[in-house]
Design a protein around this nucleic acid. Structure first.
Lengths: 197, 197
DNA sequence: TTCTTCCACTAACAGTTGTTAGTTTTGTCG
DNA sequence: CGACAAAACTAACAACTGTTAGTGGAAGAA
């Protein structure tokens, strides 16, 4: 139906603008009137397109979550070493983020404003994703790819901390491509800063 | 004066509670009535102790900033290699955070809600701090401590991303001491995950 | 006792919040 | 043209926002 298509299109426009606003001011500080103004309409008109403010946040968070999940699934299927899996996983994660830096920033910083039960669901997805990276690292420790004395929990938290702040400082008009950036990041985490002797 | 001391004491109590609330719900979503309730008083009573909601945020952010600055200054004074300076700088940073994880979380995630000109001042302090770490890394590259082909900007951003998310996942009742944690973090960043061959 | 300081209170303000109900404009298709 | 749906509008709601003014009680010092 034509109506659905055009509705989606306008709805997506609203959601995209909302993402920018949420990133800029934070979810709570961003008002529906702010959002409306950015779109050149009245606040009440927004409700022709969305059910509530939180529905927008939900859409942003869960759509990103699905993308991350899909990316990791692709990597897990491959029959390669743990070190290579980690490398590909990191690159995949960076690429997903780079595809929509604005939504990524909201995904990371604003998800806590989801209400129950959505918050619970979201956190479950997240912990699952993180644990699957942890498994990869543990595989690497067993196989001898990685050092035996590392704290895998600390390692995986460090990994995600590094990855997740990317939207905050990576500028979209940067010359570096996401693929290359992911490569450098994974190199830094795996090999460290130190010069080999 | 006795009045000043007891005033400070109660004021600090208010600020500490506010820090917890800001961390939990975010600055914007945390209302003065929420804060009052946590203290068992009326919202208006808060204004016997503080001038405004933002004054609390300002205190939290700038006090933390001063602590970070002092810690780094101590490290810079030492006459050691760049690698050692980076190690000590990281450990110092972690220790400052660990001293007040709640305030650290607010410092990191809520500073953007400062209004001008405080926001500008804060960001200047922050960029200065980061740049001084960057200088240490650049020294390390020159001296051969670190690899020549690393992107120092990326390296320093990765470093801070890792460090700064600590308050989010480090639990205060963890068995690991801040010193040890800083040690492990610096080891991971400098040496990487990879097993030496 | 009286003075002073701290710390709480009640009452109220002007502005903002997300959202609703009902209506009208706009553009497309038959 | 007329029909229909998309997308905008106006008006209003109840609740909540940070904050001020003015007041009163409690505790310690003079």
């Amino acid at each position: 139906m034509a109506e659905t298509i055009s509705n989606l299109s306008r709805k997506e426009q609203v959601i995209r603008m909302a993402a920018e606003l949420f990133k800029e001011k934070g979810y709570s500080a961003a008002s529906m009137r702010d959002l409306a103004q950015k779109l050149g309409i009245e606040a009440a008109s927004l409700y022709s397109h969305i059910k509530s403010k939180e529905e927008i946040l939900r859409t942003l968070c869960f759509d990103m979550a699905a993308d991350f999940r899909a990316s990791l699934l692709e990597v897990e299927k491959k029959n390669v070493s743990a070190r290579e899996k980690l490398r590909l996983g990191i690159i995949g994660h960076v690429k997903v983020m780079a595809r929509d830096l604005t939504a990524s920033a909201v995904f990371m910083n604003e998800h806590r404003h989801l209400s129950q039960p959505y918050l619970r669901d979201f956190l479950l997805l997240r912990i699952n994703y993180i644990n699957r990276f942890k498994t990869i690292i543990e595989e690497g420790v067993s196989s001898g790819d990685f050092k035996k004395d590392i704290d895998t929990k600390l390692a995986v938290m460090t990994l995600f901390s590094s990855l997740n702040w990317m939207p905050a400082w990576f500028s979209p008009d940067s010359t570096i491509e996401p693929e290359k950036l992911g490569e450098q990041l994974s190199d830094m985490l795996i090999n460290g800063l130190k010069q080999k002797v």
